[in-house]
Design a binder for these strands. Structure first.
Lengths: 332, 332
DNA sequence: CTATTAAGCCTAAACGTTTAGCTCTATTAT
DNA sequence: ATAATAGAGCTAAACGTTTAGGCTTAATAG
C-alpha cells in the first residue's frame, strides 16, 4: 500500500504539494499530469484513518436504532444509508435491541468510535443517554421519536395528526365506535397517536369507551390478540385503526380467522407497508409515513450541522402522514 | 477532550506507561490507582482513530449487501451486527441496491475506509469485485451467496438440499405436479435451488414440465403473478413451492383472490418468515433458513481470519434448511 | 527598472496513539 | 557479596496525513 510519501519520492514533489493536489488545490499542469500518473502507477489510495486523525473528522455517521429486524426501521435505514453514502459518509449502524442498558452502551460505543454525527431513534426518555450526548458535543438528529422537552434537532412524523385525521376520516364515513390498536405506553410515537385519537374522540363526538383503545407491542401476535379482543366485545367497534405494520398483519389475520368480512362487518385502516396493502384482499386503506422524506431530511439536517451552516436554534420537522384510501372502510 | 498526554502530565508518568496500562499491561498498584483516578477525572476516552493509524486496525467490519429494505437481509444483518458488536467490532453497512456498478463502487468505498474485514453478499459473478478484493488483501467471508469457482470463505444455506428435500417431501405426500417459484436466473441461491428442484424431478419421477418452473424477482408482485400463472394452467400443479418470503406473500394473495382453498385445491410451501407463517390461515408449512447460525458462523470465520488463526485453506460452511410442517400441504 | 503581489512549492510540526529498545531498581540465584 | 534476571518505566520514533508559514519565481503595477 503506497502512501503520499511514496508519491513524493516518485515525483520529486513534497508531501504538502501532493496533499494539496489530492484535496483539489492548484498545482502546475505538468505536475498535475505527473501526479495523476504516479497515483495510477503506485495505486495510491487515501488512508482515511490518517486523514481523520489530522482533520478530526471520520466522515462517518452513527445510526442508533431500536432493532434492525423490523421492516419499518430497516426501510428507514435503507433510505438513510443511501442519502449518507451519496454525501460521502459511511454509516455505522448499532441496534440496541429495545433494551435501555444496551441503548446507553451502544451510544457510548458510537461516540467512542469518533463518529462525526449521530442519527438516533431513542427508546424513551433515558436522561443518561441525553447526558452522554450533550457531554460529547456530537451533533445529533433524532429520527421518528424524540426526547420530550429537550432541545434537539428532530425529524418526525406528525403522529398526532395521523391518528386525529384517521379517526376524522372514519367519522366522516359515519363511524362512531372506532377502535385503535396502539403501541406500548411510554413510546413516543404511540403516545402521540394516542393523543391524536383522544382529541378526535372529543372533537368528533366519538364513542369514548376506554376498551376501544388497545395496546399492543408492535408485533404481529399482539395485533392479532388486540383485534380478537375487539371482536369478542358485545358491542364491537365498526372500524379499527391499527398503528403499525406488524400489528396490521396480525389484525387482518384475526379477521380472517373470525371470518369477518372487510369492510362489511368491520372497517379497518392499516399502517405503513404499501406493498402489502396493495396486494391484500380487499385492498387496504392505510396510513403511510413518508419514510424517504424523513430519512433525507434527517440526513440533510445532520449534514448542515456537520458543515456548520445551521444556526444555534434547533429544527424540528414533522412530516404529515398520508391516507391512502382503498377498499377497507365502509361508509355507514 | 483529553488525551494520553494529558494523563501523562496529570500523573507524571510517561505516555508509554499509560498506553501499556490502557492495553491491560502491568503497572505498579499505586500507579494503577493513580491512573484510574486520572482517567476518571480527566474523562479520558481512547481516540480509536489515532490507535487505528498506529495499529493498522480499525476494529470495523464492512457489510456489503444487495439491499437493506428487505426482511431477509435485514434479519441477517441484525444477527451479524449483534455478533460483531459483541466482539468489539463496529459494522459499516453498505447496500448496493441490486446494481452491479454500485456494488463495485461500494466495495471500493469500504476498502478505502480501511475496514479490517468484509462480509459480503455479492450480486453475481462480477470479476471486477473479485479482483478488487484479492488486490486489497482484506479478509472476506461470503454470506448467503458466493462466487462460483473462487477460493473464498463462505457461509451458505444448503439451497440445493432445501429445494431437493422440499420437492421430496411433496412427493412423499403424493404430489407429482409440483410448481416452483424461483428467484431470477443467475442469482446464486436461485440457481442452486433450481438444480435441487430438477434433481428431485429426476430422482422422484416428478412431472418434468417446464412451465412448472416460474421465475420471479423476489418481490411480492412477482410471487403473485407467478402463482396466477399456475392457477391459469389447464393442468394446475397440485403443490407449489415458493422460494422466498416476499413471493410467498404474493402467492398467498393470488390464492385468496382466486378463492383457492389451501391445501385442498393447492398445497403450498412457503419460505423464511416464521412469524407470518404461524399466523396465517391455514398455518403454513415453510422452509426456514438458519439465519442466526449463518450470521454467527460468518462472523466467527471472519474473526478467525482477522486474528490469524485460520489456516491457508478456505472454509465453506453450508447450513441445512429446516422444513417446518404445518397445515398447507395435503396428502393425496 | 524596481516594488509589489501572487502562485506554487517546500519545510516542519502537528494529530494521539503504539512500540522497540533502553535504563533503573529490586529480586533471586550462586 | 556478586551476578543474573525480571519488572516497571522511559525516550523517541513511527503511523499517513494536513497545514501554517516561509521561500522562490514569475507576473504585474508604477
Amino acid at each position: 500500500m503506497s502512501t503520499i510519501k511514496d508519491i513524493a519520492k516518485y515525483t520529486g514533489l513534497s508531501v504538502a504539494t501532493i496533499s494539496k493536489y489530492l484535496n483539489g488545490g492548484n498545482v502546475l499542469p505538468e505536475n498535475r499530469k505527473l501526479l495523476e500518473k504516479a497515483v495510477k502507477k503506485l495505486d495510491y489510495r487515501m488512508n482515511h484513518i490518517a486523514r481523520g486523525l489530522k482533520t478530526r473528522k471520520s466522515l462517518t455517521v452513527g445510526v442508533l436504532i431500536p432493532r434492525l429486524n423490523n421492516i419499518f426501521y430497516s426501510t428507514l435505514i435503507s433510505h438513510i444509508e443511501i442519502a449518507l453514502s451519496a454525501a460521502g459518509y459511511s454509516t455505522i449502524i448499532c441496534a440496541y435491541q429495545d433494551d435501555p442498558d444496551t441503548e446507553l452502551a451502544r451510544l457510548d460505543f458510537l461516540l467512542g468510535k469518533g463518529v462525526d454525527g449521530l442519527l438516533f431513534i431513542p427508546l424513551g426518555s433515558s436522561s443518561k443517554c441525553f447526558n452522554l450526548l450533550t457531554a460529547s458535543n456530537v451533533p445529533v438528529v433524532m429520527v421518528d421519536r424524540t426526547f420530550e422537552g429537550i432541545e434537539c434537532d428532530a425529524v418526525l412524523s406528525d403522529n398526532f395528526g395521523a391518528a386525529y385525521n384517521t379517526a376524522g376520516y372514519l367519522s366522516q364515513n359515519g363511524h362512531r365506535r372506532i377502535g385503535v390498536i396502539l403501541g406500548p405506553e411510554g413510546v413516543y410515537t404511540a403516545d402521540e397517536r394516542h393523543q391524536g385519537y383522544t382529541q378526535a374522540v372529543r372533537d368528533f363526538n366519538l364513542d369514548p369507551e376506554p376498551e376501544l383503545i388497545q395496546r399492543g407491542n408492535y408485533g404481529i401476535d399482539s395485533g392479532r390478540s388486540c383485534m380478537e379482543k375487539f371482536l369478542s366485545m358485545k358491542n364491537r367497534p365498526s372500524a379499527v385503526f391499527v398503528t403499525n405494520y406488524e400489528m396490521t398483519i396480525g389484525a387482518i389475520i384475526a379477521l380472517e380467522y373470525g371470518n369477518i368480512k372487510i369492510p362489511d362487518e368491520v372497517s379497518i385502516i392499516g399502517f405503513d407497508n404499501l406493498e402489502l396493502a396493495q396486494t391484500i384482499k380487499p385492498p387496504l386503506t392505510i396510513v403511510t409515513q413518508r419514510l424517504n422524506k424523513i430519512a433525507v431530511e434527517a440526513v440533510k439536517l445532520l449534514l448542515d450541522r456537520l458543515r456548520g451552516n445551521s444556526g444555534d436554534n434547533v429544527t424540528v420537522k414533522k412530516f404529515s402522514t398520508e391516507l391512502i384510501v382503498r377498499d377497507s372502510v365502509k361508509r355507514i
